[in-house]
């Protein structure tokens, strides 16, 4: 049941993460251009890392739930349950890869 509710969340996280992270950095850089108050680069990185880790946790949860659903599928005469479980799990796994790579970027790239 939980999986059914979360099925599309990793997709939204993948598409939304870049936009939200970009918007956050862009706003902070603009604000800094006009002087304080703004978050220091370290603060920006910490906020982004927290956001990314939260997204990672959700995507990871969906991936784990999908694998469990795929293994325990019952009464799957038309193969649909297995398909949706595999489909959701693969998207969640891809989202995990992207978010992990984002962590590297956040740690390494210049903020502004």
């Amino acid at each position: 049941m939980l999986l059914a509710r979360l099925r599309l969340v990793p997709l939204a996280l993948w598409a939304g993460h870049a936009s939200i992270a970009y918007g956050f950095v862009a706003v902070d850089c603009h604000v800094r251009a006009f002087g304080p108050p703004s978050l220091a680069p370290t603060g920006v990185r910490v906020a982004l890392i927290v956001f990314t880790l939260a997204a990672l946790a959700v995507s990871g949860l969906v991936a784990v739930l999908s694998v469990a659903a795929w293994r325990s599928r019952e009464e799957d005469a038309n193969g649909r349950r297995g398909f949706t479980a595999a489909f959701t799990g693969a998207i969640a796994a891809a989202s995990v890869v992207y978010l992990t790579w984002s962590l590297v970027l956040i740690a390494a790239a210049d903020v502004c």
Binding site: W14, H17, A18, A21, Y22, V25, A26, C29, V44, Y98, W101, S102, L105, I106, A109, D110, V111, C112
Partner: peptide, 11 residues
Amino acid sequence: SSLGLSFFSAT
């Protein structure tokens, strides 16, 4: 900003 752009480069 370069960090902002890098997300879009990665995606």
